[in-house]
Simulated assay, not measured.
Amino acid sequence: MSAARQLQLADLAPLDSIIVADFGYAEGERLAQVLGGWQVIGWAWVILDFF
């Protein structure tokens, strides 16, 4: 079997990013019920500014 047909660790990266994005979306929805949508968006910008 050639190396091109074997599952590599990097093949799982897109799946990992989808899972992390789902958690972020769900947490944002939960926070929006408490803080309000504009505050959640504002805090997301502040946190993402450090990355």
Score class of each variant (00 low, 15 high):
Met1Trp: 11
Met1Thr: 06
Met1Asn: 08
Met1Gly: 05
Ala4Gly: 02
Ala4Met: 05
Arg5Lys: 08
Leu7Gln: 09
Leu7Asn: 04
Gln8Pro: 11
Leu9His: 13
Leu9Tyr: 14
Leu9Asn: 09
Leu9Glu: 14
Ala10Pro: 03
Ala10Glu: 11
Ala10Leu: 12
Asp11Lys: 12
Leu12Pro: 04
Leu12Ile: 11
Leu12Gly: 12
Leu12His: 12
Ala13His: 14
Pro14Cys: 01
Pro14Ile: 02
Leu15Thr: 11
Asp16Gln: 14
Ser17Cys: 07
Ser17Gly: 04
Ser17Ala: 13
Ile18Asn: 01
Ile19Asp: 06
Val20Gln: 15
Val20Tyr: 06
Val20Trp: 10
Ala21Asp: 10
Asp22Val: 04
Phe23Trp: 15
Phe23Met: 06
Gly24Met: 01
Gly24Val: 01
Gly24Ile: 02
Gly24Pro: 00
Tyr25Ala: 09
Tyr25Ile: 05
Ala26Phe: 02
Ala26Trp: 04
Gly28Cys: 09
Gly28Leu: 05
Gly28Met: 08
Gly28Phe: 09
Glu29Asn: 04
Glu29Pro: 04
Glu29Asp: 01
Glu29Arg: 05
Glu29Leu: 07
Arg30Asn: 07
Arg30Pro: 06
Gln33Asp: 08
Gln33Asn: 06
Gln33Tyr: 04
Val34Asn: 04
Val34Asp: 00
Leu35Ala: 00
Gly36Phe: 09
Gly36Lys: 06
Gly36Trp: 07
Gly37Ile: 00
Gly37Met: 03
Trp38Val: 06
Trp38Gln: 07
Gln39Glu: 15
Gln39Tyr: 12
Gln39Pro: 03
Gln39Leu: 14
Gln39Arg: 12
Val40Trp: 10
Val40Arg: 02
Val40Gln: 06
Gly42Phe: 00
Gly42Ser: 01
Trp43Cys: 00
Trp43Gln: 07
Ala44His: 01
Ala44Gly: 02
Trp45Gly: 11
Val46Met: 13
Val46Ala: 10
Ile47Val: 15
Leu48Thr: 10
Leu48His: 07
Leu48Phe: 08
Leu48Lys: 08
Asp49Asn: 10
Asp49Leu: 13
Asp49Pro: 00
Asp49Ser: 15
Phe50Tyr: 02
Phe50Pro: 00
Phe51Met: 03
Phe51Glu: 05
